[in-house]
Design a protein around this nucleic acid. Structure first.
Lengths: 206, 206, 206, 206
DNA sequence: GATGAATGAGCGTTCATTCAT
DNA sequence: TATGAATGAACGCTCATTCAT
């Protein structure tokens, strides 16, 4: 799921360049999480990183590329961890529960990343005004969930239900868990994740 | 639930003033829904309303007040309709199902309002950078849901579960239904609402 | 030859707006003439006009529109005067001589305009990097000259020569007269114009 | 006419240094001719040359020196060729015709140089905003022409006319020939040069 | 000799807001 | 009431130049 670079024809980035990019991405995440996408100007991000505004322009083609890199890096980190936790599981019920618990477990240590990701998803738009990410970006996630549901329906674990509605709901349930936790730092994220797993287990089972 | 004015000490608004405010709010909703919060400048809203930019400043203390009015009016419309549909119902199961169906029914006819509301919720921030709406604004909704859950738990309809998690999840499920529908206009909103009612009925019941 | 506006569908400009536009155009001409096109930033033009930078953006769609207006106004002024001086003349020799003397006469009082026009012609480029004005813009002038030459060739006043080469040369001769005068303020512009008329009369005549 | 260095007190340049300078000058000419002076940033020139931006700064004191070198080298090339073609000629009429034909002949093979030269002449300015080249730079050329004219007037080949006006006009006529050809690649440059020689022969002769 | 990283000023443009009319 | 003119700060971005390596 990682893409990073290396796929394109461009030359590999030097160590120092990679470090700067990482530093800038980190500063961007902090600023976005704290002040929101709309206030996350290059000037503010540069100030947070302790560098000049021009450095960002030097290392990134533009603000858009920076935002895409934030998403890519953050997403990659989540995917890596979740994949690991789901390895070896076989039943749909187990897989879904593992997914929810794993993503919560990972996010517990990446709070600002989570907030920044949400901001970017909600606000980042192309030059023509269309949302860069958004529901259509979630399609991949929906299809992953749907695969699990169908597996469970075929194995008899799950009742017959509209898989798309369940996927949309399931996905939103997880997102809302993070949003709530982001707003209420003392909230017990893992307990929430377990409760969520229970809810969808009951909602799905035959 | 309507607040409008009348509570504060300020003088009541004249008819013409009220009409102008409504016109501006309507234009704002259209622009936000179409172009997104970030592109919804006062100039653009004024142009859409066919009036001068200054008029908005004249009738509203600032952009913030305009946004708040958009939210207030839209929310009020939803609440009015939902209240009506829930009147006379007594069991928790019935009330929750009625809520979901009613809000979907209402939104089916107020698509742009829905989109604008989403944009504002995701983007509107105070001067200090904190989100003006968001999870903490949903508190009221959560408490309403929780009241129903407790009612159901006490009556024996519902099993024992964490009412806060369920409320957060339920609320997010409804929001996601609208978001999905907004992105996929041909999606069957009412069927989705019924599926959602089923899901939470199973998730809650004893 | 004047176009101004009034042709498009846009509403007519108010008096005050027209005055501001004229003021800004005048400031632009001064700055361009003095410092060159490349240094004629909006900030500098605004400063010269004694107004805020935003005012220019308010009255003009962008820098490009401002530059076009400078050209249009200046060109229009020249054309008006030259037309007047050529009225009633009939022979090609007379018309060409009148043209050269008239344009020199007019420019004698519009020195900075002349310099600014030259700067814009040499430097103003479209978004795609192609010169906005330039040789291809001169096509109109070339064709006007060519019409006179053919008239003279048909009437027997002129010898047979390549009208395009003569037009290009004639046009350049006039431009160079202004350029020389711009660099040498004490140069006798009218004498130069008369000498030029002589040169081309000899070059053309049968 | 070559100046290069060697006159000043600075140490002579090594072979490798000379090669680099030539390479950079060549790249600069290409970029300026294609994109115009205003877009010819050091970054773009460096990219075209396939070298790092810093190399230019290393070999040239600044952008200004680079531009001066472009002009010097290009000018030198023209002068060398024209001198050769004029050797041995004696009458003013012959010399002027030879000059025009020779410079056209040379430029036919150096199109991009020509375009670049024009761009630099029109745009390059000193720190104080004064044009670095321009009419006053042409003084040398004017005086050369004037010498020929006086020679012709004294020998009786030419009529009595203002030699400065004729020199300015003659020079501009040649420049415009190149400009026209640059914009219309299919234009017959040599025929144009011959027509030009005819025009000025008639304009000058007694 | 050559590089890539970094700077900081300046660019054209947008925009919420103010205010005289 | 309503307007359009004006402001000034902030935006993303470009670029000539500097400098440690």
């Amino acid at each position: 799921m990682r893409s990073e670079n290396g796929t394109g024809g461009q030359k590999p980035r030097s160590f120092i360049e990679e470090a700067r990019r990482a530093q800038i991405v980190a500063a961007a995440i902090e600023v976005i999480a704290e002040a929101g996408y709309g206030q996350a100007s290059l000037a503010r991000i540069a100030k947070r990183a302790g560098i000049s505004k021009g450095v960002i322009s030097y290392h990134f083609a533009g603000k858009d590329e920076l935002m895409e890199e934030v998403v890519e890096r953050t997403y990659g980190g989540i995917a890596d961890h979740v994949m690991t936790r789901m390895e070896g599981l076989t039943t749909a019920t187990e897989l879904l529960r593992a997914y929810v618990l794993a993503v919560a477990e990972h996010m517990r240590g990446h709070r600002t990343q989570l907030a920044a990701l949400g901001e970017i998803f909600n606000n980042f738009r192309d030059a023509d005004g269309k949302p860069r990410y958004g529901v259509h970006t979630s399609e991949q996630i929906y299809q992953t969930f749907e695969r699990f549901y169908r597996m469970g329906q075929e194995s008899g674990e799950f009742r017959d239900f509209d898989v798309r509605v369940m996927a949309v709901t399931h996905s939103a349930a997880i997102d809302s868990m993070f949003a709530y936790w982001a707003a209420h730092p003392d909230h017990d994220l893992d307990a929430h994740a377990r409760a969520l797993a229970d809810i969808f287990e009951r909602a799905c089972r035959a």
